[in-house]
Amino acid sequence: MSNAEQYQGNLQYAVDIVLCVDATGSMHPVLDTVKSSALQFHDRLDDVMAKKGKAISQLRLKVIAFRDFGDDASTAIQQTDFLQLPAQARNFEEFVRGIEASGGGDIPESGLEALALAINSPWETGLDRRRHVIVMFTDAPAHALGTHAGTQSYPASIPRSLDDLFEQWGYARSQTAVMEQSAKRLVLFAPDLAPWSDPIAEEWDLTLHFASKAGQGLEEFEMDEIIETIANSL
C-alpha cells in the first residue's frame, strides 16, 4: 500500500476476471467488438463501479481464447496469465489484438475446457472483498469434457466430466471447491443449449446467463450491457 491516506481496508473490491473467448470462425462477426470492448474494459468497469460508489483496489484480467481440440489441438487454447491493470495494459492489448476468429470444425467447441482452466486460475487470496469472475463468450454448445482428452496438448489437469467440474466450482458446504464461495461469479454469454443453460446456468450457484442464438455470434448484446452485468455481479 503506497498511500496510507487512501487506505480503505475492507471497503474496496479486489477483482479478478477471466474472460473466456470463443475464437472460432462463427464468432468472426462479433469478435472484433468483443476485442475492442475488452481493451476498454478497465476504464469502463472503473467508470461503472465509480458510478455505483464502489472502488476497486486491484483489477487483474486473464484471457483464455478457445477453439476446438477436435479440430486443431495446437490452437485450441491460448491464454495469458493474470495481468494487472492498468500496469500491464500493453500485454493485455497485445494478446487481445492477436486473437483471430478461425477454425472450430464441428458445431460444439472446447468451451468446457476453457471454463475448467478458468476455474482453476490462480485467484487472488489476499486483500478483502475479493471477487473472482469468469465471463464466458460463446455462440456454441460445448463438447463433453474428456472427449478429446487423448489429443496433443490437452491439459492433464482438466476434470474428465461435467460432474467433476461442478465439484470444482463448488456448492453450499462443498469440500471440493477450488473457488471461494463468497467471491466467485460466472457470467455466461452463451446459447440456450446444454451445457450452458442446463445444467450450468440452472444448477450451479452464482451464475448469470445471457442466452445468445447458437451460431449467430453475440450481436444482440451491447458491451455496455455486458459491463453493467459484470459490475452488478460484483
Binding site: R185, L188, S197, W204, L206, T207, L208, H209, T229, S233
Partner: peptide
C-alpha cells in the same frame, strides 16, 4: 428478462 441464472 433475457438474463437467467441462479443469481437472477
Amino acid at each position: 428478462s433475457k438474463i437467467s441464472g441462479t443469481m437472477r
